[in-house]
Design a protein around this nucleic acid. Structure first.
Lengths: 103, 103
DNA sequence: ATGATACGTAAGAAATCTCTTACCGTTAAC
DNA sequence: GTTAACGGTAAGAGATTTCTTACGTATCAT
Protein backbone atom coordinates (compact mmCIF):
# COMPACT_ATOMS: atom_id res chain seq x y z
CA UNK A 1 0.00 0.00 0.00
CA UNK A 2 2.81 2.37 -0.83
CA UNK A 3 1.44 5.88 -1.27
CA UNK A 4 1.44 7.29 -4.75
CA UNK A 5 3.84 10.08 -3.96
CA UNK A 6 5.06 12.18 -6.85
CA UNK A 7 8.25 13.26 -5.06
CA UNK A 8 9.08 9.63 -4.53
CA UNK A 9 8.30 8.78 -8.13
CA UNK A 10 10.65 11.39 -9.55
CA UNK A 11 13.47 10.53 -7.16
CA UNK A 12 14.67 7.79 -9.52
CA UNK A 13 16.82 8.83 -12.50
CA UNK A 14 15.36 5.98 -14.50
CA UNK A 15 11.84 7.22 -13.93
CA UNK A 16 12.80 10.79 -14.78
CA UNK A 17 14.32 9.48 -18.00
CA UNK A 18 11.10 7.65 -18.79
CA UNK A 19 9.14 10.85 -18.32
CA UNK A 20 11.59 12.61 -20.61
CA UNK A 21 11.01 10.07 -23.34
CA UNK A 22 7.26 10.30 -22.89
CA UNK A 23 7.44 14.05 -23.28
CA UNK A 24 8.11 13.25 -26.94
CA UNK A 25 4.84 11.38 -27.24
CA UNK A 26 3.18 8.14 -26.16
CA UNK A 27 5.25 4.98 -26.38
CA UNK A 28 4.82 1.26 -25.99
CA UNK A 29 6.53 -0.50 -23.10
CA UNK A 30 8.73 -2.25 -25.61
CA UNK A 31 9.97 1.07 -26.99
CA UNK A 32 10.32 2.59 -23.56
CA UNK A 33 12.45 -0.27 -22.33
CA UNK A 34 14.75 -0.37 -25.34
CA UNK A 35 17.23 2.37 -24.31
CA UNK A 36 17.71 0.96 -20.81
CA UNK A 37 20.17 -1.65 -19.76
CA UNK A 38 17.68 -3.43 -17.60
CA UNK A 39 15.09 -6.10 -18.11
CA UNK A 40 11.68 -5.28 -19.50
CA UNK A 41 9.87 -6.26 -16.26
CA UNK A 42 12.04 -3.79 -14.38
CA UNK A 43 10.81 -1.04 -16.65
CA UNK A 44 7.25 -2.26 -16.15
CA UNK A 45 7.73 -1.85 -12.42
CA UNK A 46 9.03 1.67 -12.81
CA UNK A 47 6.02 2.43 -14.98
CA UNK A 48 3.79 1.15 -12.22
CA UNK A 49 5.30 3.63 -9.78
CA UNK A 50 4.74 6.43 -12.28
CA UNK A 51 1.19 5.24 -12.87
CA UNK A 52 0.40 5.18 -9.15
CA UNK A 53 1.76 8.69 -8.86
CA UNK A 54 -0.57 9.76 -11.66
CA UNK A 55 2.33 10.74 -13.89
CA UNK A 56 1.49 8.39 -16.74
CA UNK A 57 -1.67 6.85 -18.14
CA UNK A 58 -1.86 3.66 -20.14
CA UNK A 59 -3.97 2.92 -23.17
CA UNK A 60 -4.35 -0.56 -24.59
CA UNK A 61 -3.65 -0.64 -28.31
CA UNK A 62 -3.87 -4.13 -29.70
CA UNK A 63 -1.37 -6.21 -27.85
CA UNK A 64 0.62 -3.17 -26.87
CA UNK A 65 0.08 -0.73 -24.07
CA UNK A 66 0.83 2.84 -24.87
CA UNK A 67 1.91 5.02 -22.03
CA UNK A 68 1.40 8.72 -22.23
CA UNK A 69 2.66 11.49 -19.98
CA UNK A 70 0.31 13.17 -17.55
CA UNK A 71 2.33 16.08 -16.24
CA UNK A 72 -0.31 17.48 -13.92
CA UNK A 73 1.23 16.12 -10.69
CA UNK A 74 4.49 17.84 -11.62
CA UNK A 75 2.78 21.16 -11.11
CA UNK A 76 2.85 20.48 -7.37
CA UNK A 77 6.58 19.87 -7.60
CA UNK A 78 7.17 23.05 -9.58
CA UNK A 79 5.06 25.01 -7.11
CA UNK A 80 6.81 23.55 -4.10
CA UNK A 81 10.29 24.26 -5.44
CA UNK A 82 9.15 27.65 -6.72
CA UNK A 83 8.34 28.75 -3.21
CA UNK A 84 12.05 28.72 -2.55
CA UNK A 85 12.85 30.98 -5.47
CA UNK A 86 13.13 34.03 -3.21
CA UNK A 87 15.88 32.25 -1.31
CA UNK A 88 18.10 31.35 -4.23
CA UNK A 89 17.51 34.79 -5.71
CA UNK A 90 18.54 36.37 -2.42
CA UNK A 91 21.65 34.23 -2.45
CA UNK A 92 22.51 35.45 -5.94
CA UNK A 93 21.83 39.06 -4.99
CA UNK A 94 24.05 38.90 -1.92
CA UNK A 95 26.85 37.37 -3.93
CA UNK A 96 26.54 40.09 -6.57
CA UNK A 97 26.56 42.81 -3.96
CA UNK A 98 29.59 41.33 -2.30
CA UNK A 99 31.49 41.32 -5.58
CA UNK A 100 30.45 44.87 -6.41
CA UNK A 101 31.48 46.27 -3.06
CA UNK A 102 34.93 44.93 -3.77
CA UNK A 103 35.20 46.54 -7.22
CA UNK B 1 28.95 6.45 -0.96
CA UNK B 2 25.44 7.47 -1.85
CA UNK B 3 25.46 10.37 -4.30
CA UNK B 4 24.32 13.72 -3.03
CA UNK B 5 21.23 13.86 -5.20
CA UNK B 6 18.76 16.66 -4.62
CA UNK B 7 15.80 14.71 -6.01
CA UNK B 8 16.57 11.96 -3.58
CA UNK B 9 16.94 14.41 -0.71
CA UNK B 10 13.52 15.98 -1.25
CA UNK B 11 11.77 12.64 -1.71
CA UNK B 12 11.32 12.34 2.05
CA UNK B 13 8.41 14.23 3.65
CA UNK B 14 10.47 14.65 6.80
CA UNK B 15 13.26 16.34 4.89
CA UNK B 16 10.85 18.58 3.03
CA UNK B 17 9.38 19.58 6.38
CA UNK B 18 12.86 20.38 7.66
CA UNK B 19 13.47 22.64 4.69
CA UNK B 20 10.14 24.32 5.34
CA UNK B 21 11.13 25.10 8.90
CA UNK B 22 14.52 26.37 7.78
CA UNK B 23 12.80 28.72 5.34
CA UNK B 24 11.85 30.66 8.48
CA UNK B 25 15.47 31.10 9.47
CA UNK B 26 18.43 29.14 10.79
CA UNK B 27 17.76 26.69 13.59
CA UNK B 28 19.67 24.47 15.97
CA UNK B 29 19.34 20.71 15.64
CA UNK B 30 17.57 20.68 18.97
CA UNK B 31 14.91 23.06 17.71
CA UNK B 32 14.63 21.30 14.38
CA UNK B 33 14.06 17.94 16.01
CA UNK B 34 11.45 19.16 18.50
CA UNK B 35 8.35 18.97 16.27
CA UNK B 36 9.13 15.46 15.06
CA UNK B 37 8.13 12.23 16.70
CA UNK B 38 11.48 10.66 16.10
CA UNK B 39 14.77 10.54 17.91
CA UNK B 40 17.22 13.39 17.64
CA UNK B 41 19.87 11.23 15.89
CA UNK B 42 17.31 10.37 13.24
CA UNK B 43 16.90 14.06 12.52
CA UNK B 44 20.69 14.43 12.43
CA UNK B 45 20.80 11.75 9.76
CA UNK B 46 18.17 13.51 7.68
CA UNK B 47 20.17 16.69 8.04
CA UNK B 48 23.20 14.87 6.73
CA UNK B 49 21.32 13.88 3.59
CA UNK B 50 20.27 17.50 3.10
CA UNK B 51 23.82 18.66 3.72
CA UNK B 52 25.26 16.24 1.17
CA UNK B 53 22.72 17.46 -1.35
CA UNK B 54 23.87 21.02 -0.68
CA UNK B 55 20.46 22.06 0.61
CA UNK B 56 21.63 23.13 4.05
CA UNK B 57 24.80 24.51 5.54
CA UNK B 58 25.85 24.22 9.15
CA UNK B 59 27.49 26.81 11.33
CA UNK B 60 28.91 25.99 14.73
CA UNK B 61 27.65 28.33 17.42
CA UNK B 62 28.96 27.39 20.82
CA UNK B 63 27.85 23.89 21.50
CA UNK B 64 25.04 24.18 19.02
CA UNK B 65 25.05 23.76 15.28
CA UNK B 66 22.86 26.11 13.37
CA UNK B 67 21.56 24.88 10.08
CA UNK B 68 20.51 27.32 7.43
CA UNK B 69 18.75 26.76 4.17
CA UNK B 70 20.64 26.87 0.91
CA UNK B 71 17.93 26.77 -1.72
CA UNK B 72 20.21 26.91 -4.72
CA UNK B 73 19.93 23.20 -5.61
CA UNK B 74 16.16 23.56 -5.66
CA UNK B 75 16.49 25.72 -8.72
CA UNK B 76 17.38 22.60 -10.69
CA UNK B 77 14.22 20.94 -9.41
CA UNK B 78 12.06 23.92 -10.32
CA UNK B 79 13.66 24.07 -13.76
CA UNK B 80 13.20 20.38 -14.37
CA UNK B 81 9.54 20.39 -13.36
CA UNK B 82 9.02 23.66 -15.20
CA UNK B 83 9.96 22.05 -18.47
CA UNK B 84 6.73 20.10 -18.20
CA UNK B 85 4.60 23.17 -17.77
CA UNK B 86 3.57 23.15 -21.43
CA UNK B 87 2.13 19.68 -20.88
CA UNK B 88 -0.03 20.43 -17.88
CA UNK B 89 -1.15 23.68 -19.51
CA UNK B 90 -2.09 21.78 -22.63
CA UNK B 91 -4.05 19.37 -20.49
CA UNK B 92 -5.94 22.27 -18.91
CA UNK B 93 -6.56 23.87 -22.30
CA UNK B 94 -7.95 20.67 -23.80
CA UNK B 95 -10.24 20.20 -20.83
CA UNK B 96 -11.49 23.75 -21.13
CA UNK B 97 -12.10 23.40 -24.85
CA UNK B 98 -13.95 20.15 -24.29
CA UNK B 99 -16.25 21.80 -21.77
CA UNK B 100 -16.86 24.80 -24.01
CA UNK B 101 -17.72 22.74 -27.06
CA UNK B 102 -20.45 21.15 -24.96
CA UNK B 103 -21.98 24.44 -23.75
C1' DA C 1 36.60 19.99 38.29
C1' DT C 2 32.03 18.01 37.68
C1' DG C 3 27.87 17.50 35.66
C1' DA C 4 24.60 18.61 32.10
C1' DT C 5 23.60 19.88 27.29
C1' DA C 6 24.24 19.69 22.17
C1' DC C 7 25.12 16.78 18.52
C1' DG C 8 27.59 13.68 15.55
C1' DT C 9 28.61 8.74 14.54
C1' DA C 10 28.46 3.52 15.01
C1' DA C 11 25.99 -0.64 14.92
C1' DG C 12 22.17 -3.22 14.07
C1' DA C 13 17.17 -4.30 13.08
C1' DA C 14 13.32 -3.91 10.12
C1' DA C 15 11.27 -2.16 6.23
C1' DT C 16 11.51 -0.89 1.53
C1' DC C 17 13.53 -0.58 -3.18
C1' DT C 18 15.12 -2.43 -7.29
C1' DC C 19 16.64 -5.66 -9.78
C1' DT C 20 16.35 -10.71 -11.79
C1' DT C 21 14.07 -15.02 -13.68
C1' DA C 22 9.93 -17.58 -14.28
C1' DC C 23 5.44 -17.62 -15.54
C1' DC C 24 0.72 -16.24 -17.22
C1' DG C 25 -2.83 -14.17 -20.19
C1' DT C 26 -3.86 -11.58 -24.42
C1' DT C 27 -3.38 -10.36 -29.20
C1' DA C 28 -1.23 -10.66 -33.80
C1' DA C 29 0.76 -13.42 -37.53
C1' DC C 30 1.00 -17.38 -40.34
C1' DG D 1 -4.84 -23.75 -34.63
C1' DT D 2 0.06 -22.82 -33.64
C1' DT D 3 3.42 -19.87 -32.79
C1' DA D 4 5.41 -15.54 -31.68
C1' DA D 5 5.24 -10.91 -29.56
C1' DC D 6 3.62 -7.71 -25.85
C1' DG D 7 3.53 -6.93 -21.21
C1' DG D 8 1.84 -7.62 -16.43
C1' DT D 9 2.67 -10.12 -11.99
C1' DA D 10 5.04 -13.36 -8.55
C1' DA D 11 8.89 -14.73 -5.95
C1' DG D 12 13.18 -13.99 -4.23
C1' DA D 13 17.97 -11.94 -3.78
C1' DG D 14 20.69 -8.10 -2.60
C1' DA D 15 21.22 -3.28 -1.74
C1' DT D 16 19.56 0.71 0.44
C1' DT D 17 16.76 3.44 3.67
C1' DT D 18 15.38 4.73 8.02
C1' DC D 19 14.76 4.08 12.29
C1' DT D 20 16.63 2.78 17.21
C1' DT D 21 20.02 2.67 21.23
C1' DA D 22 24.66 3.30 22.75
C1' DC D 23 28.46 5.99 22.91
C1' DG D 24 32.06 9.72 22.17
C1' DT D 25 33.34 14.60 21.97
C1' DA D 26 32.87 19.54 22.64
C1' DT D 27 30.88 23.29 25.18
C1' DC D 28 28.39 25.55 28.92
C1' DA D 29 26.94 25.94 33.88
C1' DT D 30 28.01 25.69 38.74
Amino acid sequence: MAGPDVFDAIASPVRRALLDVLAGGARSVHDLAAPFEMSRPAVSQHLRVLREAGLVAEERVGRERHYRLDARPLRAVADWAGHYEQFWLRHARLLREFLEEDG
